[in-house]
Design a protein around this nucleic acid. Sequence first.
DNA 1: GTCGTTGTTCAATTTTGTTTGAACTAACCG
DNA 2: CGGTTAGTTCAAACAAAATTGAACAACGAC
Lengths: 167, 167
Amino acid sequence: MDDLLAGDQYELDPLERQVVAFFVDGVRVLGLPRSIGEIYGLLFISQTPLSLDDLVRCLHISKGSASQGLRMLKSLGAVREAEGGAERRTYYQPAIELKRLAGGFIREQIRPHLESGKTKITRLAETTRGIDDPARRKFLSERVERLETWMRSGGRVLPVLQKLLGQ
Amino acid sequence: MDDLLAGDQYELDPLERQVVAFFVDGVRVLGLPRSIGEIYGLLFISQTPLSLDDLVRCLHISKGSASQGLRMLKSLGAVREAEGGAERRTYYQPAIELKRLAGGFIREQIRPHLESGKTKITRLAETTRGIDDPARRKFLSERVERLETWMRSGGRVLPVLQKLLGQ
DNA sequence: GTCGTTGTTCAATTTTGTTTGAACTAACCG
DNA sequence: CGGTTAGTTCAAACAAAATTGAACAACGAC
């Protein structure tokens, strides 16, 4: 694509399609919508930054999808706006350092769940203390403790992950 | 639940529901269907092994769901059949060591994607070699190389992850 | 001002994935 | 055998999630 010139549609060449498909599959594994993979994939093989409109034309997706997809990719730190261009419209470039990508995903998608998980376990522990039957209560508090151990492990693993992915 | 005795339905108590909900949320993060979380969650707080029928009655899910859910949980190594019981029907217990759970998830859900990713990148590299324009080809092969680096990092991280989660 | 351009929002629609339930196989028992 | 119970399979029904597109806001240019 690169030079994107108006015109209502633009067909990707086979290599571009192959790369886009690669990222579509990739993000599905992460539980993100396909449009995210399409957008990131196209930016990834583009030699020049692309505008929202370029994405709409090349990928045949709606403006709505492109807008939402870019918003999410920005929040993940996976794309950034290109500097310079005194243009009216904004152009986007992909972040390609694994460290940055993994960091954003962990921060936005994993940590929040870990945190809310810890909260729920705290509540669970409270409920457990209110159980009458002592044998049952003992069993349950052992299980809750197991959950707490899991969460601690999770918390310990993330920083190591980030360090390893940062080369 | 525990002693499950026939009878068409069984209502979980509030604590049981809280735990089941916890796991339902948990597995959604992993991209697995809610029934998987319900089943595992109920097994997790049950002091005794449960049969497929117990799950159907306590969780108000269909036999089909329970059967498919148990199959997946078995393939993940997250439940095992209880020993002993010379019973006709089989009873299930949860695996509760994080190491085992994470190991199964990595083996069944992550590794296959990593492998197929590597294959696709190899094909991508071939396609890239066929590009005519040298400047474009150079750019693309740099990007493909970047993908290869990502995959190598991924491959290096998994064993470390498993080791860390194994306490 | 108002017209064209860029981008966002959100309800309606479409797509995707999960769950159901009826039909089925298998295994045991008398 | 025929009857009962345990569990699987899979097409159809359903639910959840993504995508669309039309209405809208924001900003310049003229």
